[in-house]
Design a protein around this nucleic acid. Structure first.
Lengths: 195, 195
DNA sequence: TCTTAATAAGTGATTGCACACTTACTAACT
DNA sequence: AGTTAGTAAGTGTGCAATCACTTATTAAGA
């Protein structure tokens, strides 16, 4: 076999790429180092030159997801609900572009044994809940929304995002996540408009 | 080892019981026939006297879940939103009593290779969506709710149930699913009340 | 500017373990 | 005595991880 050497940094990136693709395609538990090696185009043993264990590969994947996640900022002068819409839309679009996210995040198997992943998930969750709550609250404060419970509204929005993207992932991505997601968000928000 | 014989029917029930418990605890993919045998208190080989393959165990679990699922009927003279509340509450309560449900239903691994399960899931999903839609629609028709899109409201309610119970399952059932769920449903419905 | 030593990135073969499933035998009920 | 529910000890497979070894790339000394 003709060897195709690549610098380690590049190869590691490639391994992470393929790991994410395979995780989305087969499910995290069905991704073996052999399949991963085949996808990358190197031997199974070579995988372990770049990562000391399979677990480390998942850590790298988690790190990659974390680092490419769109930053949640936007020009702060836009109305709060516009910002919320933009954030949610961007979130859905990101998931569509990175289908490994629901596959990995919602996999019980990884959750059960990967402390770091569980931690990361909980933190993300809490941060988004706080962000959404503050957005709802400021929209209420300026009178754009009626007097609702901002925390509940935030929790409902989060459940919407998660429930929908999980179903999208399980149903082999058969429906248009962005369209369906933004449509349902629009519907949810229409109930809160100030009288 | 002292043998503890039991009639096959009883033993099969017990195996299904433990399979559900372990699936909820460890995730379906982490449930091995050895762990299952330990939990039941028989040898691993004995499992295969009662089920020809592991796949058949999952079929039996699916059948059990299907048969114990609460029927969705209620006295039809109650207001539609009361019926919806009752159905959703019962659904959450059932999940709490049967935590294997989200673990199995939302597992990619089983989804990927168990055609029957995927089918069942899709059918359940469609039926519930239709039921919820009709309930919302009749509440609108009698003037209990304002003129909203009943299909969207139903979809949002379903996403709420699924998103929340998945998170409850992943987070090791750390929060009170029934309380949180009914609270969020209440909140969702409050937006639709007729003016 | 050519050797040449050092290092980086690969390979095929193997190990050890966990798994689903099988086989040959055995004790308990009727 | 015959059937049934069990066991102990296997089999083969797939897996992550390791091993001894090879080839490509880089860099230093002449």
């Amino acid at each position: 076999m003709t060897r195709q050497r690549k610098p380690a940094a590049e190869r590691k990136e490639q391994i992470v790429d393929e790991a994410m693709r395979l995780a989305a395609e087969l499910g995290p538990d069905r991704m073996t180092t052999q399949k991963l090696a085949d996808a990358v185009g190197i031997s199974q043993a070579a995988i372990f030159r770049h990562f000391p264990s399979k677990k480390e590969i998942w850590q790298a994947v988690a790190a990659r997801i974390g680092s490419t996640m769109p930053a949640k900022i936007m020009q702060s002068d836009a109305p709060a609900m516009e910002r919320l819409r933009a954030i949610v839309a961007r979130q859905f679009a990101f998931i569509v572009k990175t289908p490994a996210i629901p596959a990995i995040l919602y996999s019980r198997e990884l959750h059960a044994e990967n402390e770091a992943l569980r931690e990361k998930f909980a933190t993300m969750q809490a941060r988004r809940h706080a962000l959404f709550t503050s957005l709802f609250q400021s929209a209420i404060d300026v009178g754009d929304l009626k007097e609702i419970n901002a925390e509940d509204a935030a929790a409902l929005t989060l459940a919407l995002i998660q429930g929908l993207s999980m179903r999208w992932s399980l149903e082999q991505r058969r429906f248009d996540l962005v369209a369906e997601g933004t449509r349902l968000l629009e519907f949810q928000l229409s109930g809160y408009a100030a009288a």
